[in-house]
């Protein structure tokens, strides 16, 4: 392991309590550049809460989150995004009343102030980038379609595309293949393998085969604490992990 300062993301002593219930307690983990970290754990282990804490949706009660050496624990959500952290939600979170093109356009990293958005021009650079992303997420033929009419899997891809267009250094995906058909799942794995180049990724996933395919390191959470951490094979052979999670 390298010096802590070289980590892209350092989470140290992170704690959050909801009315006395500690959803995450004294949690520490580090994510390196270009690392794919998968977080697994039983329901209620605090996996989604950890992502909420990193992206600023939930405020930590204690501890620190540093990104590229900068403290982001108290930053406003959009500032955290501007630092280079993208977040995909568990349920596809897209704008149903807008077209696929417009969904992607809103995530395009320009014109994010009120007047910037009023003056925003849909120029060739924007269109090319959106076409390129649409190609990547298998939606090139659906650009003009209202997002509402996409299938569940396509909606998940669209949200992934909305993150890609931001080009974040750290991408956080919450159960990206949940609720997908077998074919869609295979396509998503292929998509993820392509987009995780040149960036760090934190993935929450239950599908163990999928985890094995993509994970560099795995963190197992249980009751808001790290139960085990390491490579997939290490984690799989850890008796505590087998007992609370894999043994089911």
């Amino acid at each position: 392991m390298t010096e802590p300062s070289s980590f892209l993301l350092s989470v140290e002593g992170l704690t959050v309590s909801f009315d006395g219930f500690k959803a995450v307690e004294n949690l520490s983990f580090y994510v390196e550049e270009n690392e794919i970290r998968v977080i697994i754990g039983p329901n209620g282990a605090g996996k989604t809460t950890v992502l909420d804490l990193i992206c600023g949706r939930t405020r930590a009660t204690g501890g620190s989150i540093r990104f590229k050496g900068k403290e982001i624990t108290k930053l406003r959500e959009d500032k955290i995004v501007a630092e280079g952290i993208g977040r995909k939600f568990q349920n596809p979170s897209i704008y149903e009343d807008l077209s696929v093109f417009e969904n992607l356009e809103i995530s395009y990293p320009r014109g994010h102030s009120v007047f910037g958005a009023l003056a925003f021009k849909r120029d060739a650079a924007v269109r090319d980038r959106i076409d390129e992303i649409a190609e990547t997420i298998f939606l090139a033929d659906h650009l003009d379609q209202r997002a509402e009419f996409l299938s569940h899997g396509q909606k998940q891809w669209l949200e992934i595309g909305m993150l890609l267009i931001q080009d974040p250094q750290l991408l956080m995906l919450d159960e990206p293949v949940a609720g997908m058909s077998v074919a869609e799942r295979a396509k998503t794995a292929e998509l993820l393998n392509r987009i995780i180049k040149d960036r760090s990724v934190i993935v929450i996933e239950h599908d163990m085969k999928f985890v094995e395919d993509i994970a560099h390191r795995v963190t197992v959470l249980h009751q808001g604490k790290v139960l085990s951490e390491g490579s997939m094979s290490h984690v799989k052979s850890d008796p505590r992990v087998v007992e609370v999670y894999l043994g089911h």
């Binding site: 992206c55 949706r57 406003r76 959500e77 959009d78 995004v81 501007a82 993208g86 977040r87 939600f89 979170s93 897209i94 704008y95 149903e96 009343d97 807008l98 809103i106 995530s107 990293p109 994010h112 102030s113 949200e159 909305m162 931001q166």
Partner: peptide
Amino acid sequence: DKEDRVRFSGYD
């Protein structure tokens, strides 16, 4: 539609 998505796409 989805206020949180807008917020986490980098808008105030």
